[in-house]
């Protein structure tokens, strides 16, 4: 079975990746799974300088969901290259580096620095983090600034560039179009939805920062819809993400139009999930009489429900 998939110029041996922020830099998970068998891993968001992250509490569990406000705590690009990347290289992981800047200049610098480094398959540009004061979501909610960030990164790297977009927008297609016009090879859909949870005993927010980003199965229908709309209206290569916790959930994304998927919250709960999905995906493709993953992508027979044969 051919599981090879392409997201623009990015070629992946299979379509199952681990999402940014859920994988750290891989050291923790290497004892539990062979990282080289994954389609790819997306690193924790990396910034130019180290960031301490937000005050705790940073997590709250919600119905079928997880609300987080980590605030892009990371070691910074220099330490990432010196201390973290060599390990991932040694594990033969396909590494996508998620980059985050507070200004266009920071995105430019990050792209420049990482362009020269061995062992990086592509960049995922984070313009969609809801948990920081400056940058992040600020760029990703407007078409103009979305295009500018992607153009800036594109201009400084020869690596494939993915734009990770926010669902916290009125029209995802408009933002997706801007990212593609800026020169993205593909799009990661979606980052977390802005959310809030309140402790009724104290009548205070559960997160120190009040508002956070919601992930997990609770957001999956929103993510599937956005993947569907974007791939239908733009024919842009898409990596789907949002609440994948089973093979069936991953299949929804492929059928909606995603060429690959990322597992985030589902991976935190079950680190073996990606490697469970791969053989089950093969079984499904066999059953459906399909020769490979690429023939499943966007393969919706009708845009309305159809009765099952039995």
């Amino acid at each position: 079975m051919n599981l090879k998939t392409k997201i623009g110029r990015l070629v992946l041996q299979n379509p199952i990746l681990v999402a940014s922020g859920c994988f750290g830099y891989g050291e923790e998970y290497a004892p539990l799974l062979d990282l080289s068998r994954l389609g790819g891993v997306v690193t924790k968001g990396i910034s130019l300088k180290p960031r301490p992250g937000n005050s705790p509490p940073r997590l709250a569990e919600t119905p079928a969901g997880l609300l987080n406000s980590i605030g892009l705590e990371n070691v910074g690009v220099d330490r990432f290259i010196e201390e973290k990347l060599p390990f991932l290289r040694k594990q033969k992981a396909c590494v996508l580096v998620n980059i985050f800047g507070e200004s266009l200049g920071e995105y430019r610098k990050l792209a420049e620095i990482l362009d020269d480094i061995d062992g990086i398959a592509g960049l995922e540009v984070n313009i969609s983090c809801p948990n920081v004061e400056k940058g992040g979501l600020e760029f990703g909610v407007k078409p103009d600034s979305t295009r500018k960030v992607i153009e800036t990164v594109r201009g400084k790297t020869s690596l494939p560039v993915l734009a990770k977009l926010s669902p916290n927008v009125t029209d995802i297609v408009e933002i997706a179009r801007a990212a593609m016009q800026g020169g993205a090879d593909g799009l990661t859909l979606i980052n977390t939805l802005k959310g809030m949870a309140i402790d009724v005993k104290t009548r205070c927010p559960k997160l120190a920062r009040g508002i956070g980003g919601l992930s997990g199965p609770a957001i999956r229908p929103v993510a599937v819809r956005m993947v569907y709309e974007v791939s239908r209206k733009l024919a842009a290569p898409v990596i789907g993400a949002g609440g994948i916790d089973s093979t069936e959930a991953a299949l929804e994304f492929f059928i909606a139009g995603a060429g690959a998927v990322q597992i985030g919250t589902g991976f935190l709960i079950n680190p073996r999930l990606p490697l469970t999905i791969i053989p089950e995906l093969v079984g499904y493709l066999d059953n459906q009489g399909l020769k490979g993953i690429e023939s499943l992508v966007g393969n919706i027979p009708a845009d309305k429900p159809k009765r099952r044969k039995k």
Binding site: G21, C22, F23, G24, E28, Y29, K44, P52, G53, P56, P57, R58, L59, A60, E61, L66, N68, I70, E73, T265, L268, I269, P271
Partner: peptide, 30 residues
């Protein structure tokens, strides 16, 4: 005791403030 998501040091969700200068937070899990 702290709420955790991964328990393995990856998600950075269970931080506690560090006293040492140079690091702001430590991970309760790891």
């Amino acid at each position: 005791e702290e709420m955790m998501a991964c328990g393995m040091g990856a998600c950075l969700g269970c931080s506690v403030r560090a006293r040492a200068s140079g690091i702001k937070y430590l991970r309760v899990c790891q």
